[in-house]
Design a protein around this nucleic acid. Sequence first.
RNA 1: GGAGAUGUCGCAUAGUGGCCUAGUGCGCCCGCCUGCUAAGCGGGUUGAGGUUCAAACCUCUCGAGGGUUCAAAUCCCUCCAUCUCCGCCA
Length: 424
Amino acid sequence: MIDPRLLRDDPDQVRTALRRRGESPAVVDALVAADAARRASIAAFEALRAEQKQIGKQVARAQGDEKAELLARTKALSAQVKEADAAQGAAVAEYDGLLRALPNLVAPEAPEGGENDFVVLDTVGTPRDFAAEGFEPRDHLELGELLGAIDVERGAKVSGSRFYYLTGVGAQLELALVQLAMSTAATWGFIPMIPPALVRPRAMEGTGFLGQAADDVYHLEKDDLYLVGTSEVPLAAYHSDEILDAASLPLRYAAFSPCYRREAGSHGKDTRGIFRVHWFDKVEMFTYTTLEESWAEHQRLLGWEREWLDLLELPYRVIDVATGDLGSSAVRKFDCEAWVPTQGRYREVSSTSNCTEYQARRLDTRVRTAGTDGTTPAATLNGTLCAMTRTIVALLENGQQADGSVRVPTALQPFVGEVLEPIR
RNA sequence: GGAGAUGUCGCAUAGUGGCCUAGUGCGCCCGCCUGCUAAGCGGGUUGAGGUUCAAACCUCUCGAGGGUUCAAAUCCCUCCAUCUCCGCCA
């Protein structure tokens, strides 16, 4: 959630952010009113409660008639306190509910608009000219089947549409990517992590995924647990209810986990192959830092994502995602999009978001600086290092040769060899 | 899944309904003292919220949430976590 003081001190800034996201700023008025009601009810309760405590002390000392009289007074007061307490609880819950439903602010630099209003920041590498090379490129599924790497038919048989098996070199390719990504991240100073992929509601809610994205989340009713759509969730919740020492920041984690997405509302989109699936594995980067440092850290995360794509020798571009397409937690987001030859366009393979204090406030992760009083909320950022399925799509399609074999980038050759050969 | 025990301030502990405004020790911070260090002496040491120009005051916080009571760390219920034993199991 955002800083509640901002609602009192500068509500227009909140209205502007909502407008830039393409949402109605009307909730701000409701929030300001709810805040006033909350404070009034707290003051009313506290006054009554203070009186009750005061009399309670006298009761303990009093004797006989005096005691009986005090008891009569305080008995009536007790009912009032109970009532005021309930009213306060309701007012706080009302305010808190509205505040949590509010998305984060928006970075002033983020381009305004919807999904198509992104700004291209950079383009790296040159897509191959298959016409000049004299052959028609195969798509990743065709290549995957030739190589014995991807089996979507049996995925669908066993688990349904948008499921797959990685087989043979496909399985080896994923393991190679995981190993390379985790060890590379470790050299950059990230702490390797393997987090739980099943979390409690608190973690899911705290990261902001039960708002606009709720339909995309798998929920296990019987146990009230959620399957995470990204390890951002268990990583953001990792330090919940903790106060971090400022000297320990930035804290960087690289986590390998499965990701589960219902893909509600994307029926008919990317139905072929493993580009858009209900489950995939991913290595995710995550940083805890301060608000002041978050902007520079966001650039660093983007830098590491780019370094990774360079390592995989993929042509890609970087876009600055428009305000209307940001998640509710992010104030700014950069996507890296790899070239997909058979689609003739760049498609998202990684994404990095600056969530500023939004998640940390919800999950109660604070920072204490030695020599200063009090605490401040931490800032959190996340970035994809390697989403397995989409990376495999890009590697196969961009590395393919006329005979259906696939040339492997140098960095992966120690794991799977120089060329993946068709098995038939 | 079954049976039982436990959960108090950074750590360790005291606290079985009102003098708990949660004590004590250790650790930590500030100061004093002493060639240095240690020891000793004095003070401070959870976090959040509200009123307020401020100073200050008030409220909440004893794993979490409810309940009983004029009054709850203390009694009751639910949940969570940890530990012990049994069962099952990769």
